[in-house]
Each structure stands twice: as structure tokens, then as C-alpha cells.
Design a protein around this nucleic acid. Structure first.
Lengths: 125, 125
DNA sequence: AACAAAGTATTACATTTGTAATCCAACGTC
DNA sequence: GACGTTGGATTACAAATGTAATACTTTGTT
């Protein structure tokens, strides 16, 4: 598994767009982000360039414009962020931490059932 | 509830020390961190100064030296980080997110039981 | 062919962060 | 009372980040 680049807060927004759907042109990314942010298109171009330099995304030329797509796996990046977050804030994964998430979470009955199943599996280990 | 300062990755280390035990002198903080980091004492002093400027910690002079203590609540800061993290990475709290934490977590039987209880409560809401 | 439009590349610039070193002031020691 | 030690204050400086603007280069249009 290759080494993951560090993705900043703003850059995550761009990555999330591309993980949802790709390849996209720069302008398509701008449009996707239009609702969620107030960034000027040029700002988004900058983020795209930086992500490219970091190796987080790649592109192919399609005629004269570029189609961008992720170069790193979302799961891997999420896992890295999660670990970093947990270490920083809780000093490690613990029950109080999971509990705090649960208190904020909006879960369906099915979700709850499934989480309980996971807990049961962990209980057996 | 007052507005919380943004606490950086390194600064969190200092805050965690003070939340665990305070007030402490700068040197006591340095000693507490000695095991976990390779920071020079001067580096830690810088972090303390910045946290003071941000209003995250306060101090009283005790003779010629300062005793530092948190000026913001750990719970509030943790909550803010959690929300920021979740929004950035998952776009909101969801079952897959909680599940991913559970998969990494090391939980005792009691922990598991308690989490299941929380889930049951959520099921009733 | 000249010009406008659209994309990409380059440059900008203040703030924050990581990681310290140096300066200054008070206190204890010889 | 001069001097070293110790702790806080000030200064340092590069990299990352947020947030763009300007420059350059194709390409479509008239």
C-alpha cells in the first residue's frame, strides 16, 4: 500500500467529489462544489493542482482538457484520518469515544441492528 | 458557550496533558510530554504561548513562575473536533462511520454491553 | 488572420503550524 | 555585588494552507 499524501481540510472537499464520481473535468468539480462552498473557481483549481502535485489525484488529457480522478483509495484515506483523529483527541480508540459518536448519530433501526451485530462479533473474539 | 479556539495537532498534546491534570508549570508539562514526543523544551514553551494567546489556556503567577490550566472544556473541544472530522471525512455521521470505528476498536465485554445499551436507547427514540 | 473565450500554469500573499534559538529579567550563590 | 541559572518573552524561519489573481496558450469565431 503506497504512502498516502496528507490531504488538507479544503482538499478533502475536492477528494470527496471525485470519490463520488470520476473522472471529472475541473469545471465539473467546480460545479459539484458550488452548492457546498463559496470558493471561487480559481481557488478550486488551486486545490486540484495541489492534490495533483501530492499524488492524490491524476488526470488524462482528453483533447485539450483534463479529466481528473482519484489516485488514492478513499478507504485508505479515511482510515488514516480516523486514526489521526482518534490518537489526537482521545489518545486511542475507547468505549467513551465510540459512545460519544453514537450520541450524535442518527441511525435507523436497521443501522442499530447492524451495529449490534458487529458488537456481538467483537464480543466473541 | 464561548467560541472555541482552533487547536492544532501539536497543541492537542499539550491540552491533553493539562486536561488530565492542572495546574502545571511549564516544566511539569515538559516532563509529562517527555515520554510521548521528541520535542525540545523550547518547542513546548512555544506551544504553551500560542495556546495562551488563543485563549485555550490561562495561567496565574505563583511567585516567579506560571501555573497553567485549561481555559476551555475538553468535552467542548472534543465535540468540535469530532464534528469537524465527521463532516470532512464522512460528510455526516452514519452507520458505516460508526462501524468503521468499531472495527478498529478494542473493547472489553463491559464496554460492548454498554454500547449495546446506548444503541437500545437510540432504538427507542 | 485577429480576437475572444476557455483552460491550464504560474505567481501572490497573509496566516498557521512545526520546530526551535536567542534575548532578557529575576533569583540564588559565591 | 558579579555571575550563572532558570524561566518567560521575543524572534526565526521554512512548509503548509486558505484564498485567489494574473499570465499564457489553445481553439473556436468572425
Amino acid at each position: 500500500m503506497k504512502k498516502l499524501p496528507k490531504i488538507s481540510e479544503s482538499e478533502w472537499q475536492v477528494m470527496r467529489v471525485l470519490w463520488k464520481k470520476s473522472p471529472l473535468t475541473a469545471n465539473e468539480i467546480v460545479e459539484e462544489l458550488a452548492g457546498n462552498t463559496n470558493w471561487k473557481p480559481k481557488t478550486i483549481k488551486t486545490l486540484i493542482t495541489r492534490l495533483t502535485n501530492k499524488g492524490a489525484i491524476k488526470f488524462e488529457k482528453e483533447g485539450r482538457l483534463y479529466k481528473y480522478h482519484p489516485a488514492v483509495s478513499k478507504d485508505d484515506c479515511v482510515r488514516m484520518e480516523r486514526r489521526s483523529f482518534v490518537r489526537r483527541v482521545y489518545g486511542g480508540i475507547s468505549k467513551p469515544m465510540v459512545a460519544s459518536f453514537l450520541e450524535d448519530a442518527e441511525l435507523s433501526a436497521d443501522d442499530i441492528a447492524e451495529l449490534k451485530k458487529i458488537l456481538d462479533q467483537k464480543a466473541e473474539e
